[in-house]
Write a protein that binds this DNA or RNA. Structure first.
Lengths: 105, 105
DNA sequence: CGTGTAAGGAATTCTGACACG
DNA sequence: CGTGTAAGGAATTCTGACACG
């Protein structure tokens, strides 16, 4: 089953701590957002909030960047990966429609 | 097996967000620290950092407080619970010493 | 393109204290 | 005892921009 949207995906970490956790500068982190690689939430007054999943993603991005991969390519790969999993989810959905688990019985 | 010291116990949440998450005022959160109920870490310049486990603990504390339980009693209960689990850990340790898993073989 | 930096302002957090009860 | 609040300062974060390359 999918993991609960709990600890790993709750957006609660401020940019300063993300910076410590990833070794990236705040400038870099904000720039990757500008390039649509990460999507922090915002506090009422506009402060960015990240999840552990975001932190891990940023570490992956940092590694790719070290290899010289451009943000544009990283973004393409992310989009492709996402579509791929969407197709899988769709497939699962179709299967569930025929053989899926019955709720309430 | 015990959960990894990962997401749930990493101290990465600032007090403002903990306040939002728990519904407690920052004053209350700091006071419970003064009464030795929570133990946040500190960033280099002194800002408090909490874990999701701390957030859950604070919610428990808030519930107890609503029932009129004083911080002193809450603390006593926590100490008792901790000792209880230490005894269990000790017991496990003794058993492992005789029948435990061997490392390196 | 990706990142550093100085700029100015707004929001956050910290501590110690007075208040009430 | 538990919590609110005003106080003053220090650290954080934000945006838009110039710089270099």
């Amino acid at each position: 089953m999918a993991e609960s949207p709990s600890y790993k995906h709750r957006k609660v970490i401020t940019i300063g701590i993300v910076s410590e956790l990833t070794g990236l500068s705040e400038r870099q982190i904000r720039y990757y957002e500008e390039r649509k690689l990460v999507f922090p939430e915002r506090s009422p007054k506009g402060n960015r909030k990240y999840s552990f999943a975001d932190v891990e993603l940023l570490i992956d991005i940092a590694n790719k960047r070290e290899e010289g991969v451009q943000t544009f390519e990283i973004r393409q790969d992310m989009i492709r990966a996402k579509k791929k999993q969407e197709r899988k989810a769709l497939l699962r959905g179709e299967i569930n429609a025929r053989f899926g688990i019955q709720k309430d019985r």
